[in-house]
């Protein structure tokens, strides 16, 4: 500012050299990334605590996440990290045309990620697979719900495919709730039931016994308000599954030990916070894209591209942890 003949425009007046400015910017961004990691760390910590206290919730509920969608998004973000890294390199070389192309691709990847996420969220919303108080899966037509479970059961061939699966086909008779995907649902169900039974510590779970004892008609009775009671052996499979959901319903607060909604609460918090970061990252990319097109950067100075690149990599990295932790439990 004050008459340095060698003070280029891009250099802040309080810096002596471009190197000093670049180093300061990088250190600042790394520190900021550290705070971002710590922000997510709180959620990872909550995840770890609830997962270790209630593994059955996670094993059961993760099946309702769509692994294919998750994997697709992982691929999209990894690819976008690659294009971002290339953009930073090209910026350093001063090849601004390439930078514009690469940043645009990165930005489009961001939109792609959000689009897939939207599809996933909508499916959850439709089936009432939401957090805490909003978790009302049984109130929704479980047609698509079943399809989702179908996905998962198909892909994972989940842990507990037991004899119940065979009987379960008839559970389609459970009507409203489980028409199309019933058999697949059932395939996944016993896993839930077993887990549930395995963790009575969470508070007086009666689900497992009910599941294997068709004679116990009590939950059935309650259930029948919502769907026609299945007859015969079908009831067995139906039972194996339904208490799982039923105990989450608000009608029976005493029997809420399984608390499956906690998984969805954590899922929405983690992916939601991450989504906010994706949007922030995309805004930053749009900003450097605009500046590149305006010709603000050159081989001598492209620090903002570099810093935004660092940020975008962190956003991707967080997802790389979220994907297995949420989608690939087991």
């Amino acid at each position: 500012m004050s008459g340095h003949s060698s003070h280029p425009d891009y250099l802040g007046h309080h810096y002596d050299t471009p190197e000093q400015q670049f180093d300061s910017g990088s250190l600042g961004m790394w520190l900021f990334l550290a705070t971002e990691v710590l922000l997510f760390a709180g959620l990872f910590c909550a995840y770890a605590i609830y997962r270790s206290h209630h593994p059955e919730i996670f094993l059961y509920a993760h099946q309702y996440l769509d692994k294919n969608m998750g994997a697709l998004n992982t691929a999209v973000l990894i690819f976008s990290s690659f294009t971002m890294a290339m953009a930073v390199r090209m910026a350093q070389l001063g090849k601004n045309n390439h930078v514009v192309t690469l940043l645009t691709i990165t930005l489009l990847c961001g939109f792609g990620f959000l689009g897939v996420k939207k599809v996933e969220y909508e499916a959850k919303w439709k089936h009432g697979l939401l957090w805490g108080k909003k978790f009302h899966p049984e109130e929704h037509s479980a047609g698509a719900h079943g399809t989702e479970a179908l996905h998962d059961a198909g892909v994972t061939t989940a842990a507990g495919v037991t004899t119940a699966a065979g009987v379960a086909t008839a559970a389609g008779g459970a009507g409203a709730s489980h028409d199309t995907g019933a058999s697949h649902d059932a395939a996944a169900m016993p896993a839930g039931a077993t887990d549930h039974g395995a963790a009575p510590a969470t508070g007086g779970s009666t689900a497992a016994p009910v599941g294997i004892n068709p004679a116990n008609a009590d939950p059935m009775a309650v259930r029948s308000n919502i769907a026609p009671p299945p007859a015969g052996p079908a009831g067995l499979a139906e039972n194996a599954f339904e208490p799982k959901q039923k105990v989450n319903s608000h009608a029976t607060p005493k029997e809420r030990p399984s608390n499956v909604h906690i998984f969805f609460g954590i899922y929405f918090l983690m992916t939601g916070l991450h989504g906010v970061h994706v949007i922030a990252g995309m805004s930053a990319i749009a900003w450097v894209l605009w500046r590149t097109m305006k010709g603000h950067f050159s081989a001598q100075y492209s620090t903002p591209v570099h810093l935004v690149g660092l940020y975008w990599h962190l956003v991707d990295l967080v997802w790389i942890y979220l994907f297995p932790l949420l989608y690939l439990v087991g």
Binding site: L31, T35, L38, L39, G132, K134, N259, I266, F268, L269
Partner: peptide, 30 residues
């Protein structure tokens, strides 16, 4: 830099608990 983000996420969780009932801190929700 190292502690404040944890307060940030804690307060967000508290807000989420209060506004949405996510069941992280509320014993009634597990």
């Amino acid at each position: 830099v190292l502690a404040t983000p944890v307060l940030g996420i804690t307060l967000l969780l508290l807000i989420a608990e209060r506004a949405m009932g996510i069941g992280i801190f509320d014993p009634a929700l597990g």
